[in-house]
Computed example of a mutant assay.
Amino acid sequence: MPKGDGKLIAQNRKARHDYTIVDTIEAGIVLQGTEIKSIRAGRINLKDGFARVRNGEVFLHNVHISPYDQGNIFNHDPLRTRKLLMHKKQIQRLIGETKNTGITLIPLKVYIKNGVAKVLIGLAKGKKKYDKREDLKRKVQNREIERALKNRD
Rank of each mutant, 00 (worst) to 15 (best):
P2N: 14
K3P: 14
K3M: 14
G4S: 11
I9C: 11
A10G: 10
A10P: 10
A10E: 10
N12I: 11
R13G: 15
A15W: 11
H17D: 15
D18M: 09
Y19L: 02
V22Q: 14
D23N: 15
T24C: 12
T24K: 00
I25L: 02
G28R: 04
I29E: 00
I29L: 00
Q32A: 07
E35K: 02
E35T: 03
K37N: 14
S38K: 06
I39P: 00
I39G: 04
A41L: 13
G42Q: 07
R43P: 03
R43W: 13
R43M: 12
I44L: 08
K47W: 12
K47L: 14
D48R: 10
G49A: 07
R52F: 09
R52Q: 15
V53G: 05
R54W: 08
R54D: 14
R54V: 15
R54S: 06
N55T: 12
G56Y: 08
G56Q: 12
V58W: 02
V58F: 05
N62A: 13
H64S: 13
S66W: 12
Y68K: 07
D69C: 02
D69L: 10
G71H: 05
I73M: 08
I73D: 02
I73C: 06
I73Y: 05
H76E: 01
P78S: 02
L84W: 01
H87Q: 05
K88V: 13
K88E: 15
K89V: 04
K89W: 09
K89N: 12
Q92F: 09
Q92M: 10
R93V: 07
L94I: 11
I95N: 05
G96F: 07
G96L: 11
G96Q: 12
G96D: 10
E97M: 10
E97S: 09
T98P: 11
T98H: 10
T98D: 10
N100L: 15
T101K: 15
T101I: 13
I103E: 10
I106G: 02
L108H: 08
V110F: 01
V110G: 01
N114P: 04
N114M: 14
G115P: 05
A117V: 15
I121P: 01
I121C: 01
G122C: 04
L123V: 00
A124Q: 00
K125D: 04
K125H: 09
G126K: 15
K129F: 03
D131K: 00
R133A: 03
E134S: 08
K137H: 08
R138N: 13
Q141M: 05
N142Q: 14
N142V: 07
N142M: 12
I145W: 02
I145Q: 09
R147F: 03
A148R: 09
A148P: 05
K150W: 10
R152T: 08
D153R: 11
D153Y: 10
